[in-house]
Write a protein that binds this DNA or RNA. Sequence first.
DNA 1: GTCTATAGTATGATAGAC
DNA 2: GTCTATCATACTATAGAC
Lengths: 187, 187
Amino acid sequence: MPATKSSREDAVAAITAVFREFGYDGASLSRLSEASGLGRSSLYHHFPNGKEDMAAAAVAHLAGLATDGILAPLDGEGDATARVKAAAAGISKFYDGGRANCLANLLSIGEAATAAPGAAKSLISALENAFEQVAVDAGFAQKEARIRAEQAIVEIEGALVVSRAAGNNAPFQRALGRLPEILTGGK
Amino acid sequence: MPATKSSREDAVAAITAVFREFGYDGASLSRLSEASGLGRSSLYHHFPNGKEDMAAAAVAHLAGLATDGILAPLDGEGDATARVKAAAAGISKFYDGGRANCLANLLSIGEAATAAPGAAKSLISALENAFEQVAVDAGFAQKEARIRAEQAIVEIEGALVVSRAAGNNAPFQRALGRLPEILTGGK
DNA sequence: GTCTATAGTATGATAGAC
DNA sequence: GTCTATCATACTATAGAC
């Protein structure tokens, strides 16, 4: 593996963290440069279209993390409840236990919506479909499964918002704990 | 009423809308000036400390709207369910039927947290206390009332996030419809 | 692939006339 | 109380050496 590849991957991870904490407008090139350890010109070498490219890379990176850590476990082996528990662990990691910003909200604020159009919608939609399928696998009818999938996402996102506002991870962790009950009835 | 007063009030309302749509970092003086119809210097006349003052005024304005439109109905006359329904109508208006940004999230991103420290926490805390009281009035024990109050806030905020991401107000409206059931058991 | 240096623009903020 | 004109700074982005 060439040093090139890992350097860019490292940069993307660092850049993603900055966008996540400060939002699109707050993520200045100074901050992005400092966090990635790359000078301005190096950033433009990796991301020719500048900040817009960096934001796109960050969104793609997050989509990859969500796919590997959340969607894949839901689509994996084992009974429905076990898969939901694995996904809950993945969600906790994805949101740093409740400390990271709610992604869907970040992507809908200010210029972010322009830089990554539809990103939040497609991420949430993919998760909702996976939740629905696992609920069907657990024995719920399609219609009921869809309702429960939406309810699960609502509770996760809401608990994340409350946890961050209150500076207390408990609501988020409680929501994750309720996931098996919501999606599979505990079966 | 002097023209002075109404002019400033109008400006605060316009400024609030800009902060709400673009976040703290995205709310540039150009945008704030255009939205309020005031030149840069006029803005600094009304808000001597500049952008920071404007953000503080916006937060105070939103807190006032929440108090009048949501907290007051909860604390008003009538049975618990009627008060919850009145509050639900207030919440819908506050969030423009599900089109406006989730406030708690906005206030926790980037520089906004510095400009209005603790604002999200105190707003959510006030709402949680009011919800808890109405659940107690409906006959729930204190502990159960607290759980239901938190659940209500989680569902509202979560549904708002999902609605905005999906570009569909239905989840938010459904969450508001569930409020009486959650907080008063429909009583 | 990374750097220094810098262009060009937008930002937040001020001064002073009216 | 609002304006025009302007400041200093930070921003995104580019040029060109190594």
